[in-house]
Nucleic acid binder design. Structure first.
Lengths: 229, 229
DNA sequence: TGTACATCAGTGAACGCGCGTTCACTGATGTAC
DNA sequence: TGTACATCAGTGAACGCGCGTTCACTGATGTAC
């Protein structure tokens, strides 16, 4: 909460700069982001932007954090939008569809966080990771609640079991969040399966072969059919 | 086949230029490709490269075609490497593992064909698509042969059926190749599910959560378990 | 065998471009007394 | 009420950089006669 009117104006200007930055990336790709081009669009000189961001990299970091938070907000809203809270299939379906919708509606934000890195830019992990985690939480939460309600009906056994060493990091995170490792693994399977459709679709590799919305829903249903009762 | 010694030398030099281009991309990302940087590395002046490629875009196109062909060759070799030709699970597993191995060993080629597009570059589809198709053929072929041998055991019905309109392009392609549309759809499901793991792994979004090789194999097995007997 | 010629890889200078960042500065605004 | 002062958004020039592409050219090589 800004304490003075000046701080509010400063924040508003930062928002404008970020908005123009996103627009530039939409036109030229994430690697086409340029401080001078943003300044030109805002009828400012390039050095003026240094009042708001210490460097181009800091602007990129801010955009990435915004994008992760925007995606996480979208997923959480989709989950909350299902009235019947015990219909876990519907809730997970809603979250998954929201993931693709966000990517289609904000393709630049999506590419910014999950696509090729921008040349010369390295994200400071201590800033971006917490925002990235929110996305995973939004998805995995439904699995956790379904399991608590006895509606999670899968179990990794036999040929379809994970080796314990493969779940070392998973187990550590599971303890931290007070969640079963299997559910995190299931969430990763679902997420990665869906992400492939989304990212290939965005880059135009799918729609000449098959309707991508149908393919996406099928990937979700094949999971739900097996993992949630 | 070059008809003179000069043509052979000319082709060898094109190969060197492409090799240096790939090295530059490895260091700076696909968007970091620069004609002048390539020339510098080869102890040439920039205009000399115009003897070999009419423009930077033509060089990029050549790299893309090489990458698609390299990936397709890798998949075909993996398939051919399974001695027991009726073990369709093993053959499909080999092809899928080869897909990820190629991505890990040639990450730049992989990002070049499936990652964010290079700013200002648009691939001429009539040149790149035929090479891209080879990748799909290598994967789908195993499904087709399994089905011919009665080992393909899935069928899209009920809630897990595709709407006919979703398969319009699929059906057209299926007729062209003399293949059942369902098998192409199944191949797309498999490919997209696996691609998500690979691309997220390359960009570092997975390994802090779960062992990516195990996750990848699990995604394959969940498909094989259900689709191939 | 020797000469004239064609080929063509590669040069070096130049074109105009945009980039991130720095620096000393201006000039409007609001505040303290 | 009027004046001195601090604040700070924004300017304009400059830094050194790398880029793709063009152009007229050089100079080595091999071939034809």
């Amino acid at each position: 909460m800004p304490r003075t009117r000046d701080e509010a104006e400063h924040g508003a200007m930062k928002g404008q700069i970020k908005a123009v930055a996103r627009a530039q990336m939409s036109a030229n790709g994430t690697a086409g982001l340029a401080l001078r081009a943003i300044a030109r669009e805002l009828n400012l000189t390039a050095p003026a932007l240094y009042r708001y961001f210490p460097s181009l990299d800091d602007l990129i970091t801010a955009l990435i954090v915004d994008a992760f938070n925007g995606l996480a907000d979208t997923l959480e809203a989709a989950n909350a939008g299902i009235a019947n809270r015990t219909d876990y299939k519907a809730r997970l379906m809603a979250v998954c569809l929201a993931y693709r919708n966000y990517a289609l509606q904000q393709p630049i934000d999506f590419q910014l966080i999950y696509g090729n890195p921008i040349p010369g830019y390295a994200a400071p992990r201590e800033i971006t990771v917490p925002a990235a985690v929110r996305v995973h939480v939004a998805l995995t939460r439904v699995l956790v609640e379904a399991e608590a309600a006895g509606k999670y009906c899968y179990s990794f056994t036999g040929k379809l079991a994970f080796a314990p060493t493969a779940l070392e990091n998973t187990t550590r995170i599971a303890q931290e969040f007070g969640v079963k490792p299997e559910l995190i693994a299931a969430g990763m399977i679902l997420w990665t399966s869906l992400h492939g459709v989304v990212t290939l679709d965005l880059d135009g590799h799918l729609d000449s072969v098959i309707a991508t919305d149908a393919l996406y829903e099928m990937n979700i249903r094949l999971f739900l059919d097996r993992f949630i009762s």
